[in-house]
C-alpha cells in the first residue's frame, strides 16, 4: 500500500511539474516557429505529408500496445532498485501535465480537459500506479540483495499483476479509442 501511495505521489509530482513547464514555455515571448528567410520559400519542403491516424480497433490496439510497454518497463524497477519506475512515473506525469498545461493555456476549459482525460485516465494511470508500486519494491530488494531468494520474487505476484494490467489497460484503451475520441469530436464541433 505504501509503494502504491509512493507511485501516486511520483505521478502527481510529475504532473505538477509538467503543468509548470507548459506555463513557463507559454509565458516566453512569442516567436514565429517558422521564420521564412529571403532565401527560403515558404513551401520549400513541398506539400505537407498526410499522416494516417489509426481509428477504431487499430487505435485500440495501438494504445494498448504502447501502454503495456510502459507497464512492463515500470515493472523493471524490481531489477533496477526502483530507478526506472521513479523516472518513468515522473516522465509520464510530466507528459500528462504538459498536455493539461498547454490545453489550459490554449483556452480549453478545465471541464473539457477533464472530459477528455478522466474517462480513460483513471483506469490507465491507476494500472500504471499498480505497476509502479511493484517496481518500487525493487528499492528494499536492492538494499537486502544478499538475502534475496526465489521467494522474494514470488512474493511480488508478477503473474497476477500482469493479468490485472492487461485487463485494466485493455479497458482504458477501449474507453480512449471509442469514447474519448467521440467526446473530442463533439468538443471540436462546438
Amino acid at each position: 500500500m505504501g509503494c502504491f501511495f509512493g507511485a501516486v505521489v511520483l505521478l502527481v509530482v510529475g504532473l505538477a511539474a509538467g503543468v509548470g513547464i507548459a506555463e513557463w514555455i507559454s509565458a516566453m515571448p512569442a516567436q514565429s516557429p517558422l521564420p521564412v528567410g529571403a532565401d527560403r520559400p515558404l513551401l520549400a519542403a513541398g506539400p505537407a505529408r498526410r499522416v494516417e491516424e489509426p481509428v477504431g480497433w487499430d487505435l485500440f490496439a495501438f494504445i494498448l500496445r504502447r501502454n503495456m510497454t510502459v507497464f512492463l518497463i515500470l515493472l523493471l524497477g524490481v531489477v533496477s532498485a526502483g530507478l526506472v519506475t521513479i523516472v518513468v512515473l515522473l516522465g509520464n506525469g510530466l507528459a500528462v501535465g504538459q498536455l493539461i498545461g498547454f490545453a489550459r493555456v490554449s483556452g480549453m476549459s478545465q471541464v473539457d480537459v477533464a472530459y477528455l482525460l478522466l474517462p480513460h485516465g483513471v483506469l490507465e494511470l491507476g494500472a500504471l500506479c499498480v505497476a509502479g508500486a511493484v517496481g518500487l519494491r525493487g528499492i528494499p530488494l536492492a538494499f537486502g540483495i544478499s538475502a534475496i531468494e526465489r521467494s522474494s520474487f514470488a512474493a511480488l505476484r508478477l503473474g497476477t499483476v500482469l493479468v490485472f494490467g492487461l485487463g485494466a489497460l485493455a479497458g482504458a484503451a477501449g474507453v480512449e479509442a471509442f469514447v474519448t475520441v467521440g467526446i473530442a469530436e463533439s468538443l471540436r464541433s462546438k
Partner: peptide, 17 residues
Amino acid sequence: YVTVVVVATVTTAFVGV
C-alpha cells in the same frame, strides 16, 4: 533531456535483468 534520463535508467534496468 527527459528521454536521456529515461534511456539511462532503462539501461541500468536492462543490466539488472
